[in-house]
Design a protein around this nucleic acid. Structure first.
Length: 499
RNA sequence: GCUCCCAUCGUCUAGAGGCCUAGGACACGUCCCUUUCACGGACGCGACACCGGUUCAAAUCCGGUUGGGAGUACCA
């Protein structure tokens, strides 16, 4: 039997680092066993999917070098490889009809209102939230008649009501047992006639001859449904293997808010594919020889699916950065030059309008743009204490500004020059007023908050320089996260006593 | 709430009953190299969640507790 594995991302938003992770595992597995690695696009959610996003997936996988043997843009004998195209072919409907004919599925005419009411009542009663299956009772003739009359409906699977589903996931010590009584009558075909993930994935995995479905743990709970579908559709089920989910530092499932998840970001940032892949390869498993630095191609021949650790690994950017350094320093002169150009180009169009006024020669760009590219900045301590302030005062002002900016960020406020001017200018003016009833201490503090002084402090703390383009445009271009980091770091330095 | 999954240094991991006074990497600290910074090198800090059981012997097997995560959609 030839191994055939796949990844099946949904083209919603930016290509995800999780796709690269699961992709790498599948790619290695296919390589190791002389099998095929397939890309399928699962765009059955018509509202959220876009072609641009699908294109970005192809480009990202290409960038990483996770080449697929079959897929939308490379073809293959089991196409089409985009589910929306398969919908047009009537593929899923045919299988839904088969289940209906076998009395393994039924039409459900319940409305969204019916369902949400049901849900609320179950929640209030602290019952498991499940469809109450009222439409199961409909006779075949009535069901057919209402459908014929054009009444909107979905098709649900007729899940068993007793017994249990058992599956041996090779990565888990115990068989995964799930009682059918706890499993819902999953919607298979939506009211618009499109399949849900469950139906589409099972059908396509079968039609595409997939032998092993290696996917993330989030699917483990719906495994019984997939097994059931395979059985009732008369398919030989592929082997299902569930690997751990990538996590944020707080152990929750990796998310955009807490980590860079977009593969586009890593590419833009200058991460090398080999470094990212190397890092990913170290999550949840390890090279059998104990090596820490290796390419995907070096891993593939010795890749062992059974060695994967299912505990979800925390995604640690610091380690990625270390690996990146290792790989970067190994680049030859030409590659190095290319990387430098790439890095500069990434922001040059955006920065040039800002910097050109102060430039005399092309090379001036290098020096003047540094604060916008650099991860951190190191202002002179003396510059951090503008005339008219002492260290504790500068520190106090920075700390208060950090708080203002953080609140703004927390409230999802806009981060552009104009918004910043309003925000920061407002914060300064508000504090600068000398209220008649103020205590002497408050009066003294109010006098510190004059624009000229605070602006210089901000400029130095954020850019590391006393000279820069206009302050708010500078802050806007440096970016929210880095500005806040830099101001906080400056405040901290001001607090540290040096002899 | 209900169901399922998981559990070794802060983080990624090695470890599949004796090789473990638990090994490596990142991070962190000290030192060396170095005009500086980085790289590199040396040293250090630092974990088997807890409680029972099985066994001559448990990080490794079993049970429970605790903790964490995921799922619970006409999203995937």
């Amino acid at each position: 039997m030839t191994v055939r594995v796949r990844i099946a991302p949904s083209p919603t938003g930016d290509p995800h680092v999780g796709t690269a992770y699961i992709g790498l595992i599948n790619w290695c597995f296919a390589r190791r066993h002389g099998g095929k690695f397939i890309l399928r696009i699962e765009d059955t959610d018509r509202g959220r999917c876009s072609d641009a996003s699908a294109q970005a997936i192809y480009a990202s996988l290409k960038w990483l070098g996770l080449s697929y043997d079959e897929g939308p843009d490379v073809g293959g004998d089991h196409g089409p490889y985009v589910q929306s195209e398969r919908v047009a072919l009537g593929i899923y409907r045919k299988y839904a009809d088969q289940l209906l004919a076998q009395n393994d599925a039924y039409r459900c005419f319940c409305t969204a209102d019916d369902l949400s009411g049901m849900r609320e009542r179950q929640l209030a009663a602290k019952q498991p939230v499940m469809y109450d299956r009222r439409c199961r009772a409909l006779s075949a003739t009535e069901s057919a008649k209402r459908a014929e009359a054009g009444e909107t409906h979905v098709v649900r699977m007729k899940a068993p009501t007793e017994g249990a589903s058992t599956y041996n996931d090779r990565l888990r010590r115990q068989p995964v047992v799930k009682q059918w009584a706890e499993i819902d009558d999953q919607v298979l075909l939506k009211s618009d006639g499109w399949p849900t993930y469950h139906l589409a994935a099972v059908v396509d995995d079968h039609l595409m001859g997939i032998t092993h479905v290696i996917r993330a743990e989030e699917w483990l709970n719906s495994l019984p449904k997939h097994l059931w579908l395979n059985q009732h559709l008369g398919f030989t089920a592929p082997e299902y293997v569930h690997v751990g989910l990538l996590r944020n530092a707080d152990k929750s499932k990796i998310s955009k808010r807490k980590n860079p998840t977009s593969l586009l970001w890593y590419r833009r940032q200058g991460y090398l594919p080999d470094a990212l892949l190397n890092f990913l390869a170290l999550l949840g498993h390890s090279h059998p020889d104990g090596r820490e630095k290796f390419t995907a191609a070096e891993l593939a021949p010795v890749f062992d699916l059974d060695r994967i650790n299912v505990a979800g690994p925390v995604f640690d950017l610091a380690k990625l950065k270390h690996l990146q350094g290792l790989w970067f320093r190994e680049l030859g002169p030409d590659q190095l030059k290319a990387e430098i150009h790439r890095a500069v180009d990434a922001r040059v169009d955006e920065l040039l309008p800002l910097l050109r006024e102060r430039m005399v020669f092309g090379g001036d760009y290098l020096l003047q743009s540094a604060p916008f590219y650099a991860e951190t900045v190191e202002p002179h301590l003396d510059d951090l204490v503008p005339k008219g302030l002492d260290r504790p005062q500068a520190k106090l002002i920075l700390e208060k500004l950090v708080r203002v900016l953080k609140d703004h960020a927390g409230a999802n406020g806009t981060w552009d020059a104009k918004a910043l001017e309003t925000l920061i200018g407002g914060a300064i003016d508000e504090r600068a007023v000398e209220k008649p009833e103020a205590t002497p201490a408050q009066l003294a503090e109010a006098r510190l908050w004059n624009r000229k002084t605070v602006f210089m402090l901000l400029r130095v703390a954020a850019s590391g320089r006393k000279e820069s383009p206009p302050l708010f445009e500078t802050l806007a271009a440096i970016g929210q996260v880095r500005v806040i980091e830099r101001l906080a770091a400056a405040a901290q330095r001001l607090g540290v006593l040096v002899k």
